[in-house]
Design a protein around this nucleic acid. Structure first.
Lengths: 212, 212
DNA sequence: ATGGATTTCGAACGTTTGTTCGAAATTCAC
DNA sequence: GTGAATTTCGAACAAACGTTCGAAATCCAT
C-alpha cells in the first residue's frame, strides 16, 4: 500500500470501469459500422454486453457522446502512431511509404472504427464536430508534408502547392476507399498494397518492361 | 389530335406526374445528402414541395423505394453517359481521360445524388441492393477495361490482372473522394482535376523539371 | 356537364427511439 | 461488518417515425 493511495481514497478500480467503457465502445463500433449511426439503437449496444439501457447512461452522456468518443479516440490514436512514423529517420520516400503502411495497417486493425470515421463525421454536431475536425486537420497536414517532399513544393504559396494539395487528396481517396474492397486474403498484406500505391506515386501506372 | 391518342385514352398527362416524381426525388436527394438516409423523414421531403405525407405514398411505395430510385436512376444515367465516352475513337489514354472527366463532371452536376450513391449503398436491402449492385459492377468493368489498356493486362488470369484491379480501385478512391473537397471555385474546372489525375497515372507525382 | 379514373389529403396506428429518474444492488476502504 | 460512493437496473415518457386507409378533391376525354 504505497502512500499514493492515501491521496485519492475513492472507490472501485478506475481501470475496471474504463475497460467496460472500452468494451462498450468496441461493441458500439461494430454495430454502427454495420447499420449506420442513426439506425443503431443504444439499447442494442448495451444488450450485446448485457448492460441495461439505463446502465448505458452511466458510461455515456448521450448517443452523440458515444459517436464522438469512437471517432475522437480512434483518430487520436491514428494521429499519434503516424506522428511517430513521420519522425523516423530515412529518405522522404521511406517516410511516405511508412505513412501509407501505417494508415492501411491501422485501417486493417480497426475496420469498424475507421469506417465510422469515414462515414459518420457529419453526424457529429457542434463542439463534437469541431474537436474531431481539429485532429483530422493535423493528420491531413502530416500527410501533406510528406507528400510535399515528393512533389517538391517546400515553401507555401508556390504554384505547385495546389498540385501537392490535390495529390494529397488523391492519396487520401485511395487510402480511405480501401475499406470498400480490401481483404487481407485476396489482396495480400497491407505492406504490398502500400507498395503498389507508392509505385503509382513514383512512376505512374503505365505498363513498363524495365525493372523498377 | 394524332391517331395515337385513341389507343390509350387514359387520364392526365403522364409526363406531369413523372415530373412531379422527379422533383420529389431531387428534393429527397438534397435532404438525404445533407442528413443521411435514416435521419431523413419522408414527411420533410414532401413538405419541401408542399406534398402531404399521405401524398408521398402515391409516388413512392416506401421509403426504401425512394432511396432505390435515387441510386438506380443516378447510377444508370452515369453508366449510360460513360459507355458513350468509352466508345469514342481515340487512343487508350484519351479514352481514360474522357472517363475521368465524365465521372467528375457527373459528380459536379449531381453532387447530392452521387454522395448518396457513395454513402448509402448499404442502406439498400434485398432486391434493391442487388439491382443497384449490378449497375455498379458494369461501371466498374468499364473503368477497369480502360485502365487495363494503360497498365497493359490485356488477357485475364495474368499476374498483373491483380495490379490492374488495384489501380482501378485506387482510381475509384480518388474519384469518389472528390466530393469531400472539390469546389469548382477553389479547384478549377473538372477537366483540370482530371488532367492532374491522368498525369499521376502516367508519370507519377514526383517533382520533375522536364516538360511532360 | 358528366363520370370514372387519377391525385391529394388528413387522421390514425403501432413501433421504436433517446433520455430521465429514483430506487436497488454492488463495491471497497476502513 | 459498516457506510458512503459507485454501479446497475427497470419503468416510464414524450417525440418521431413509416405506413395504412378511406374519403375528398381534381382532372380530362367524351
Amino acid at each position: 500500500m504505497g502512500a499514493g493511495t492515501l491521496i485519492r481514497p475513492r472507490q472501485r478500480s478506475r481501470v475496471a470501469t474504463r475497460q467496460k467503457a472500452d468494451q462498450l465502445l468496441e461493441a458500439a463500433a461494430a454495430i454502427i459500422a454495420e447499420k449506420g449511426f442513426e439506425a443503431t439503437a443504444i439499447r442494442d449496444v448495451g444488450r450485446r454486453l448485457e448492460v441495461s439501457l439505463g446502465g448505458m447512461y452511466y458510461y455515456f452522456a448521450s448517443k452523440d457522446d458515444l459517436l464522438f468518443q469512437i471517432q475522437f479516440r480512434t483518430f487520436g490514436a491514428l494521429l499519434a502512431e503516424q506522428e511517430r512514423a513521420a519522425n523516423l529517420p530515412g529518405s522522404a520516400e521511406d517516410r511516405l511509404r511508412g505513412l501509407l503502411v501505417g494508415h492501411l495497417a491501422f485501417f486493417a486493425e480497426h475496420p469498424n472504427e475507421m469506417k465510422i470515421c469515414t462515414f459518420e463525421l457529419e453526424s457529429l454536431k457542434g463542439d463534437f464536430y469541431d474537436r474531431v475536425l481539429t485532429i483530422r486537420r493535423k493528420y491531413y497536414r502530416l500527410m501533406e508534408d510528406a507528400i510535399g517532399e515528393l512533389t517538391g513544393s517546400r515553401d507555401r504559396r508556390t504554384k505547385d502547392a495546389d498540385r501537392t494539395r490535390h495529390v494529397t487528396l488523391f492519396v487520401f481517396g485511395m487510402l480511405n476507399w480501401a475499406f470498400m474492397w480490401y481483404k487481407s486474403g485476396k489482396d495480400g498484406p497491407v505492406e504490398a498494397v502500400a507498395a503498389e500505391m507508392m509505385d503509382l506515386l513514383l512512376h505512374g501506372a503505365r505498363k513498363r518492361r524495365d525493372a523498377r
